[in-house]
Simulated assay, not measured.
Amino acid sequence: MDFDFTDDQESLRDAVRRWVDKDYGFEHRRGIVKAGGFSREAWDGLVGLGLTALAVSEEHGGMGFGPVDAMVVMEELGRGIVMEPYAQAGLIAPSVLRQAPAEVQAEWLPKIAGGEALIVLAHQERGARYKLDKVTARADGQTVTGTKSLVPCGDQADAFIVPADTGAGIALYLVQRSASGVSTRGYSLQDGSRAAEVSFDKSPATLLVGPSQGLAVLELAVDVGIAALCAEGVGAMEKLLAITVEYMNTRKQFGVAIASFQALRHRIADVKMQLELARSMSYFASLKLGDEPAVRRRALAQAKLQLCNSARYVGQQCTQLHGGIGVTDEYISSHYFKRLTAMEMQFGDSLHQLAEVSAGMQDQAGVFA
């Protein structure tokens, strides 16, 4: 199998990397964190690169690129630990809206491609424990009532994709933030990014996907998010490893660089191994997005589980190799560690994904009995 990227994909990688290095440096990012965790200027920069058009079809003003191109972009955004919700608005939202009626697609997909609409998935609820079929929000005709938690940039988004129980199953609706009955309470997360509690009180809503397919499309949206998160994690771990190696080559003890100590070199080798395991599963996740649902869901659970394990190991080891400076807010590596730690809680933590993988193996039970 050929794992080389095309010239166009390498050009895309270079363009995003240049933007991250030039316009999203560490001090600039710290300023965004202090300002609340979201920058409209930075978001406009992503729009200017054409990234919001990446996953939108050419028919609706986009580029019509695929999962591998999205993976390339997310790796580079991970290198810069970019906090703006690109995966949500640029990848997940188009994947859902592609299943909507033609007139809804014609209204919203060009707005996403042009950066005029920032639409995020609002699916998490208290007590659901990552179970997508546990939805307490209710739909009554063309209105939605309920509360969603940890909505990415929920107080900044233009609209939300909201799963709601219709009584006949889970349907997906689009609700604008400006609609009546919508209220938001924003806050900063541990990694510096922004989220919000979003409440709907008989808020006018547009049906995207009916109850017969709502849960299946929601599962697809979450899988798209997991694939993006895996790629972002690879980029973040790769950059954190580079920062750590550079530190070890300059930090001296007993008159020599600590990079010369064999025990520490072995630890770095183990970190590199965990990074490559995560990278291979990130590739696997992106390539499986087009498979039939059962195969796709199992593959994405496996990929997210590996991401959780790798991110924890890489984050902890690199922080320990830095010593005390590795946990200070003024030093860059601590921010990568916080982002990698927060990733575990998104779209299902390691225990949830382990249960998903185990459930998918039930058909093999007793083989070795």
Rank of each mutant, 00 (worst) to 15 (best):
L132F: 08
S333M: 06
A236D: 02
M83I: 11
E356V: 10
L289S: 05
P67G: 04
A227P: 01
S183V: 08
Y24N: 04
R138Y: 02
A168W: 00
A196M: 04
L77C: 06
T184Y: 06
S203T: 03
A278G: 06
V222D: 09
I258W: 10
A299M: 09
E330W: 11
W108A: 06
R185F: 13
F261L: 14
R279S: 08
R298N: 08
R265V: 11
Y130M: 05
G141F: 13
Q346K: 13
L289D: 02
H28N: 07
Q99P: 07
P101N: 10
Q317I: 15
L229D: 02
D223A: 14
I243K: 12
L229W: 04
K338M: 09
N249Y: 03
S280D: 12
A122K: 02
T319A: 09
R267W: 07
L240R: 05
L340A: 09
D14N: 13
R296D: 07
V222Q: 13
G186H: 06
G78M: 07
T341A: 15
Q346Y: 14
V327I: 13
E197I: 14
L275K: 07
Q156P: 00
L207R: 14
Q190Y: 15
H322W: 15
T52Y: 14
A89M: 05
S260G: 00
A303W: 03
H60Y: 15
L77P: 01
Q176W: 14
Q176S: 14
K148P: 00
A106H: 07
E116Y: 07
V182P: 02
L289W: 08
A157C: 04
H123E: 10
S358W: 08
S333C: 12
R296T: 09
M345G: 13
P94G: 06
P67R: 11
R30S: 10
W108K: 07
W43V: 07
G127L: 01
G210Y: 03
Q213F: 10
Q142H: 12
V144A: 05
R298C: 05
A227N: 06
V162H: 01
V256R: 15
V314S: 02
V224T: 13
T166Y: 07
V162P: 00
P163Q: 08
G210M: 03
G167E: 08
L172F: 09
L91S: 02
G210E: 11
A179Y: 02
G66M: 01
G214S: 07
E276I: 09
A196I: 00
P163D: 09
Y247P: 04
Y331W: 13
D165H: 09
K148D: 00
R40P: 06
D14A: 15
G225R: 11
A117K: 12
L229V: 06
A87R: 09
E58P: 01
G127C: 04
H266C: 10
G214R: 10
R267E: 13
Q253I: 13
V162K: 04
Q176A: 15
R29Y: 15
V47H: 03
D329C: 04
V151I: 12
M273S: 09
R29H: 14
D23I: 07
Q9I: 11
R296F: 09
Q105I: 08
L264T: 06
E76N: 04
